[in-house]
Simulated assay, not measured.
Amino acid sequence: MHWNIYSSSTEFAVTLLAVFVVGLSKGGLGGMSLLGVPLMALVMPPVTAAAILLPVLVIMDIISVATWRRWADWQILRRILPFSVIGIGIGWATAELVSDSMVRLIVGLVSLAFVARAIFGAAGGGAPTAAARFWGGLAGYTSFVAHAGGPPLQIYMMPLRLDPKIFTGTTVMFFAITNALKLVPYAALGEFSSENLARSTVMLPLAVGATWLGSWTVRRMHPRVFYPFTYASVALVGIKLVWDGVAGL
């Protein structure tokens, strides 16, 4: 029963909301997965929130990969995944040095700059190898420290103007591999206590349902709807992260 695992009904309810929003996003519906840790951090320490979410994210990834694996672009993944691994390693090595607030502020500013460029600047073409290295590494780093790797990856991928199915399939596969790799350093840092794992387990049925709902929705979206929706969701999350980052400094 949840009251034996969570410290309050409010904590339980906020975690339910965070998992539902993240599940929709993991299914391919926008960039709202960034809200997971900030929402939960309203009622628990950010590190605890990230530790509870990671096993849930891995289960969501399994469902998403089963749905989207046929649309993953492995040429793109081969460019960015090695640098994501480097980013994870840097996050692991500096886990005690960078505050959660600073990470949120950085990711939020990057998100808003990305949306501003899309609105006011040129759309851009294919990203060069240097961009793949930089944004892949930053996606791995921010994914490790705050499960917030979405904006850096989207900055790299959205100018490619991929079909929504290819975009979603490639994104899903990137984070499935990245999140699986993150299990090792999180375990080494002692974040998977029996209490946190029990909290994660309670959320799994909701995670499965929300991920399926997100996949069902995005497969029926036209590109004219998909891309504006994704930009809007990234903008909202960016504002939230900047607000939380500044408030926490």
Rank of each mutant, 00 (worst) to 15 (best):
V242T: 06
A113L: 14
I166K: 15
T168S: 13
L183Q: 00
G125L: 05
R220H: 07
L57E: 03
V85L: 12
A41K: 02
K165H: 15
A18E: 03
Q75S: 15
G137P: 01
G89A: 07
L81Q: 02
R220N: 07
L53F: 06
L162K: 02
T178H: 00
M44N: 08
M60F: 09
M203S: 12
A235I: 05
I106L: 14
A146C: 09
L109F: 10
Q75I: 09
V21R: 02
G190M: 06
N179Q: 07
A247I: 00
Y6H: 09
A176F: 11
M44G: 08
F192L: 09
F83L: 04
I80A: 14
R220D: 02
G140L: 02
T230N: 12
T211Q: 07
M203W: 11
A18S: 09
P152F: 06
L213N: 05
V115C: 11
F144K: 00
I86G: 05
S200K: 05
I5W: 14
P45W: 13
D244N: 10
A49C: 09
P128I: 04
P82E: 06
F229K: 06
A66H: 14
N4F: 14
V172K: 06
W68T: 13
G137I: 03
P38S: 07
I63Q: 13
A122V: 14
A210R: 00
I166F: 12
A72D: 11
I119V: 15
G87K: 01
D61W: 01
I86Y: 01
P152L: 03
T129F: 15
L249E: 03
W216T: 06
S200E: 08
T142G: 03
G31Q: 08
A72N: 10
L204F: 12
R78K: 13
I155E: 01
P185V: 06
N4A: 15
V218K: 02
L97M: 11
G136I: 04
V208M: 11
A95Q: 12
W243D: 00
A130M: 10
D163F: 08
G248M: 04
A123N: 13
P151S: 08
L54E: 00
V145N: 05
L213W: 06
S99E: 13
L105N: 00
M203F: 11
R70I: 14
M173I: 09
M44H: 09
L112F: 05
A198Y: 06
T211H: 04
P185N: 05
D73W: 07
W74M: 15
L54R: 01
L54T: 02
P55G: 07
V110H: 04
P152V: 02
Y141P: 01
F175W: 06
V37P: 00
L53H: 04
I88Q: 01
S200A: 14
V37S: 03
K182T: 03
Y156I: 00
A118W: 14
A180M: 10
R219E: 10
S33Y: 03
A188D: 12
H2E: 14
L249F: 10
Q154I: 13
M32D: 07
Q75Y: 10
D244V: 01
W71L: 13
G125D: 04
I59H: 06
A122K: 15
A123H: 14
M157Q: 04
V115E: 10
I76M: 09
V107H: 04
M1G: 13
L138R: 04
L34S: 08
F192E: 01
G209M: 11
A122M: 14
V208L: 12
G150T: 08
L183E: 01
Y231W: 15
M40K: 02
